[in-house]
Write a protein that binds this DNA or RNA. Structure first.
Lengths: 107, 107
DNA sequence: CGGTTATATAACAATATCGTTATATAAATC
DNA sequence: GATTTATATAACGATATTGTTATATAACCG
Protein backbone atom coordinates (compact mmCIF):
# COMPACT_ATOMS: atom_id res chain seq x y z
CA UNK A 1 0.00 0.00 0.00
CA UNK A 2 1.62 3.24 -1.05
CA UNK A 3 1.13 6.41 0.88
CA UNK A 4 -0.42 8.66 -1.72
CA UNK A 5 -0.88 11.43 0.80
CA UNK A 6 2.84 11.58 1.43
CA UNK A 7 3.73 11.11 -2.21
CA UNK A 8 1.53 13.88 -3.59
CA UNK A 9 2.40 16.10 -0.68
CA UNK A 10 6.07 15.62 -1.45
CA UNK A 11 5.47 16.49 -5.09
CA UNK A 12 3.70 19.70 -4.13
CA UNK A 13 6.97 21.47 -3.41
CA UNK A 14 8.89 22.95 -6.35
CA UNK A 15 12.27 22.35 -4.76
CA UNK A 16 11.45 18.70 -4.31
CA UNK A 17 10.20 18.38 -7.86
CA UNK A 18 13.43 19.93 -9.06
CA UNK A 19 15.36 17.42 -6.98
CA UNK A 20 13.42 14.59 -8.55
CA UNK A 21 14.01 16.03 -11.99
CA UNK A 22 17.72 16.05 -11.24
CA UNK A 23 17.60 12.49 -9.97
CA UNK A 24 15.86 11.45 -13.14
CA UNK A 25 19.26 12.05 -14.74
CA UNK A 26 20.90 9.70 -12.28
CA UNK A 27 22.16 9.34 -8.76
CA UNK A 28 23.39 12.39 -6.82
CA UNK A 29 24.70 13.24 -3.38
CA UNK A 30 23.10 15.71 -1.01
CA UNK A 31 25.62 18.41 -1.79
CA UNK A 32 25.22 17.91 -5.51
CA UNK A 33 21.47 18.23 -5.13
CA UNK A 34 21.80 21.32 -2.94
CA UNK A 35 24.05 23.25 -5.28
CA UNK A 36 21.44 24.70 -7.67
CA UNK A 37 19.32 26.06 -4.84
CA UNK A 38 19.67 29.09 -2.65
CA UNK A 39 18.38 27.41 0.42
CA UNK A 40 20.65 25.97 3.10
CA UNK A 41 21.91 22.41 3.34
CA UNK A 42 19.70 21.48 6.31
CA UNK A 43 16.69 22.53 4.28
CA UNK A 44 17.75 20.21 1.48
CA UNK A 45 18.33 17.41 3.95
CA UNK A 46 14.82 17.77 5.12
CA UNK A 47 13.40 17.82 1.64
CA UNK A 48 15.23 14.58 1.01
CA UNK A 49 13.81 13.13 4.17
CA UNK A 50 10.34 14.01 2.95
CA UNK A 51 11.01 12.42 -0.43
CA UNK A 52 12.40 9.32 1.22
CA UNK A 53 9.46 9.13 3.60
CA UNK A 54 7.13 9.27 0.64
CA UNK A 55 9.06 6.44 -0.95
CA UNK A 56 10.04 8.57 -3.91
CA UNK A 57 13.77 8.20 -3.42
CA UNK A 58 16.14 5.73 -1.83
CA UNK A 59 19.57 6.37 -0.39
CA UNK A 60 22.62 4.31 0.19
CA UNK A 61 25.66 4.93 2.35
CA UNK A 62 28.98 5.52 0.68
CA UNK A 63 31.49 6.77 3.18
CA UNK A 64 30.41 10.19 4.27
CA UNK A 65 28.09 10.53 1.31
CA UNK A 66 24.49 9.46 0.95
CA UNK A 67 23.78 9.21 -2.75
CA UNK A 68 20.10 9.41 -3.62
CA UNK A 69 18.23 7.86 -6.49
CA UNK A 70 14.67 7.70 -7.73
CA UNK A 71 12.50 4.91 -6.39
CA UNK A 72 10.58 3.57 -9.37
CA UNK A 73 7.94 1.89 -7.28
CA UNK A 74 6.42 4.99 -5.73
CA UNK A 75 6.26 6.81 -9.04
CA UNK A 76 4.50 3.83 -10.54
CA UNK A 77 1.96 3.87 -7.76
CA UNK A 78 1.18 7.54 -8.23
CA UNK A 79 0.88 6.89 -11.89
CA UNK A 80 -1.53 4.10 -11.24
CA UNK A 81 -3.78 6.32 -9.19
CA UNK A 82 -3.77 9.00 -11.85
CA UNK A 83 -4.65 6.33 -14.35
CA UNK A 84 -8.15 6.37 -13.00
CA UNK A 85 -8.58 10.04 -13.87
CA UNK A 86 -6.73 9.66 -17.12
CA UNK A 87 -9.25 7.12 -18.18
CA UNK A 88 -12.06 9.58 -17.64
CA UNK A 89 -10.20 12.21 -19.59
CA UNK A 90 -10.00 10.20 -22.72
CA UNK A 91 -13.34 8.43 -22.43
CA UNK A 92 -16.06 9.42 -24.81
CA UNK A 93 -18.69 9.94 -22.19
CA UNK A 94 -16.62 12.85 -21.06
CA UNK A 95 -17.32 14.60 -24.32
CA UNK A 96 -20.94 13.67 -24.05
CA UNK A 97 -20.87 15.24 -20.62
CA UNK A 98 -19.51 18.42 -22.15
CA UNK A 99 -22.28 18.50 -24.66
CA UNK A 100 -24.92 18.03 -22.01
CA UNK A 101 -23.40 20.77 -19.92
CA UNK A 102 -23.39 23.05 -22.91
CA UNK A 103 -27.06 22.35 -23.53
CA UNK A 104 -28.01 23.07 -19.95
CA UNK A 105 -26.10 26.33 -19.99
CA UNK A 106 -28.05 27.51 -22.98
CA UNK A 107 -31.39 26.70 -21.48
CA UNK B 1 1.65 27.32 -17.34
CA UNK B 2 -0.11 25.07 -14.91
CA UNK B 3 0.30 25.42 -11.20
CA UNK B 4 1.84 22.12 -10.28
CA UNK B 5 2.31 23.22 -6.69
CA UNK B 6 -1.41 23.73 -6.29
CA UNK B 7 -2.31 20.62 -8.24
CA UNK B 8 -0.10 18.20 -6.33
CA UNK B 9 -0.97 19.89 -3.08
CA UNK B 10 -4.65 19.40 -3.85
CA UNK B 11 -4.05 15.73 -4.59
CA UNK B 12 -2.28 15.24 -1.28
CA UNK B 13 -5.53 15.13 0.63
CA UNK B 14 -7.46 11.85 0.73
CA UNK B 15 -10.84 13.56 0.86
CA UNK B 16 -10.00 15.51 -2.26
CA UNK B 17 -8.75 12.42 -4.05
CA UNK B 18 -12.00 10.68 -3.13
CA UNK B 19 -13.92 13.63 -4.53
CA UNK B 20 -11.98 13.41 -7.77
CA UNK B 21 -12.58 9.67 -7.92
CA UNK B 22 -16.26 10.35 -7.56
CA UNK B 23 -16.16 13.00 -10.26
CA UNK B 24 -14.43 10.56 -12.54
CA UNK B 25 -17.83 8.85 -12.66
CA UNK B 26 -19.47 12.09 -13.75
CA UNK B 27 -20.72 15.42 -12.60
CA UNK B 28 -21.96 15.87 -9.02
CA UNK B 29 -23.28 18.65 -6.80
CA UNK B 30 -21.68 19.76 -3.56
CA UNK B 31 -24.21 17.90 -1.44
CA UNK B 32 -23.79 14.74 -3.46
CA UNK B 33 -20.06 14.94 -3.00
CA UNK B 34 -20.37 15.64 0.71
CA UNK B 35 -22.64 12.69 1.49
CA UNK B 36 -20.02 9.91 1.76
CA UNK B 37 -17.90 11.90 4.20
CA UNK B 38 -18.25 12.59 7.87
CA UNK B 39 -16.97 16.10 7.62
CA UNK B 40 -19.23 19.13 7.44
CA UNK B 41 -20.49 20.86 4.32
CA UNK B 42 -18.32 23.94 4.73
CA UNK B 43 -15.28 21.67 4.83
CA UNK B 44 -16.35 20.09 1.53
CA UNK B 45 -16.96 23.52 0.06
CA UNK B 46 -13.41 24.46 0.87
CA UNK B 47 -11.99 21.27 -0.55
CA UNK B 48 -13.81 22.05 -3.74
CA UNK B 49 -12.41 25.53 -3.72
CA UNK B 50 -8.93 24.06 -3.44
CA UNK B 51 -9.58 21.67 -6.30
CA UNK B 52 -10.98 24.48 -8.40
CA UNK B 53 -8.04 26.71 -7.57
CA UNK B 54 -5.72 23.97 -8.71
CA UNK B 55 -7.64 23.73 -11.94
CA UNK B 56 -8.61 20.14 -11.26
CA UNK B 57 -12.34 20.75 -11.39
CA UNK B 58 -14.72 23.23 -12.94
CA UNK B 59 -18.15 24.23 -11.74
CA UNK B 60 -21.23 25.61 -13.37
CA UNK B 61 -24.24 27.30 -11.90
CA UNK B 62 -27.56 25.54 -12.07
CA UNK B 63 -30.09 27.31 -9.89
CA UNK B 64 -29.02 26.83 -6.32
CA UNK B 65 -26.67 24.01 -7.24
CA UNK B 66 -23.06 24.14 -8.37
CA UNK B 67 -22.36 20.90 -10.17
CA UNK B 68 -18.68 20.02 -10.35
CA UNK B 69 -16.78 18.09 -12.97
CA UNK B 70 -13.23 17.04 -13.65
CA UNK B 71 -11.07 19.44 -15.62
CA UNK B 72 -9.17 17.33 -18.11
CA UNK B 73 -6.52 19.94 -18.74
CA UNK B 74 -4.99 20.02 -15.26
CA UNK B 75 -4.83 16.26 -15.02
CA UNK B 76 -3.08 16.18 -18.36
CA UNK B 77 -0.54 18.67 -17.14
CA UNK B 78 0.24 16.68 -14.02
CA UNK B 79 0.54 13.65 -16.17
CA UNK B 80 2.93 15.42 -18.41
CA UNK B 81 5.21 16.32 -15.55
CA UNK B 82 5.20 12.79 -14.25
CA UNK B 83 6.07 11.65 -17.73
CA UNK B 84 9.59 12.83 -17.12
CA UNK B 85 10.01 10.50 -14.17
CA UNK B 86 8.14 7.71 -15.90
CA UNK B 87 10.67 7.84 -18.66
CA UNK B 88 13.46 7.26 -16.19
CA UNK B 89 11.60 4.38 -14.67
CA UNK B 90 11.38 2.42 -17.84
CA UNK B 91 14.66 3.46 -19.37
CA UNK B 92 17.43 0.91 -19.54
CA UNK B 93 20.05 3.16 -18.04
CA UNK B 94 18.11 2.88 -14.86
CA UNK B 95 18.96 -0.79 -14.72
CA UNK B 96 22.52 0.01 -15.54
CA UNK B 97 22.44 2.38 -12.64
CA UNK B 98 21.29 -0.43 -10.42
CA UNK B 99 24.15 -2.59 -11.54
CA UNK B 100 26.67 0.15 -10.89
CA UNK B 101 25.23 0.76 -7.44
CA UNK B 102 25.44 -2.92 -6.73
CA UNK B 103 29.09 -2.98 -7.75
CA UNK B 104 29.94 -0.04 -5.55
CA UNK B 105 28.21 -1.62 -2.59
CA UNK B 106 30.26 -4.74 -2.92
CA UNK B 107 33.55 -2.92 -3.16
C1' DC C 1 -44.35 36.11 1.41
C1' DG C 2 -42.13 32.58 4.65
C1' DG C 3 -39.61 28.49 5.18
C1' DT C 4 -36.45 25.28 3.35
C1' DT C 5 -32.51 23.88 0.50
C1' DA C 6 -27.85 24.44 -1.57
C1' DT C 7 -23.78 26.57 -1.02
C1' DA C 8 -20.30 30.11 0.54
C1' DT C 9 -17.75 32.75 3.85
C1' DA C 10 -15.82 34.35 8.26
C1' DA C 11 -13.61 33.50 12.54
C1' DC C 12 -11.07 30.50 15.26
C1' DA C 13 -8.15 26.59 17.20
C1' DA C 14 -5.02 22.78 16.29
C1' DT C 15 -1.53 21.11 13.65
C1' DA C 16 1.80 20.89 9.85
C1' DT C 17 5.34 22.86 6.86
C1' DC C 18 9.42 25.43 5.52
C1' DG C 19 13.30 28.01 6.19
C1' DT C 20 16.98 29.56 9.38
C1' DT C 21 20.87 29.08 12.69
C1' DA C 22 23.48 26.31 15.76
C1' DT C 23 25.31 22.06 16.68
C1' DA C 24 26.37 16.91 16.32
C1' DT C 25 28.60 13.02 14.03
C1' DA C 26 31.39 10.41 11.33
C1' DA C 27 34.39 9.69 7.45
C1' DA C 28 38.33 11.75 4.78
C1' DT C 29 42.51 14.12 4.62
C1' DC C 30 46.70 16.36 5.97
C1' DG D 1 45.65 13.45 15.90
C1' DA D 2 43.61 17.76 14.11
C1' DT D 3 40.94 19.59 10.48
C1' DT D 4 37.83 19.56 6.91
C1' DT D 5 33.92 17.60 4.47
C1' DA D 6 29.25 15.53 4.08
C1' DT D 7 25.20 15.13 6.24
C1' DA D 8 21.71 15.06 10.09
C1' DT D 9 19.14 16.96 13.87
C1' DA D 10 17.17 20.27 17.16
C1' DA D 11 14.98 24.48 18.21
C1' DC D 12 12.45 28.29 16.68
C1' DG D 13 9.47 31.62 14.11
C1' DA D 14 6.42 32.48 10.17
C1' DT D 15 2.90 30.91 7.47
C1' DA D 16 -0.44 27.52 5.67
C1' DT D 17 -3.90 23.91 6.14
C1' DT D 18 -7.94 21.60 7.94
C1' DG D 19 -11.77 21.15 10.59
C1' DT D 20 -15.53 23.40 13.38
C1' DT D 21 -19.45 26.55 14.32
C1' DA D 22 -22.09 30.48 13.11
C1' DT D 23 -23.94 33.10 9.67
C1' DA D 24 -24.95 34.99 4.88
C1' DT D 25 -27.08 34.54 0.35
C1' DA D 26 -29.86 33.17 -3.10
C1' DA D 27 -32.97 30.00 -5.37
C1' DC D 28 -37.03 26.98 -4.67
C1' DC D 29 -41.52 25.62 -2.84
C1' DG D 30 -45.98 25.94 -0.84
Amino acid sequence: MPNLDAAFSALADPTRRAILARLALGEATVMELAKPFEITQPAISRHLKVLEGAGLIVRRVEGTKRPCRLAPKAVAEIDQWLGMLRQTLTANYNRLDDVLAEMKTKE
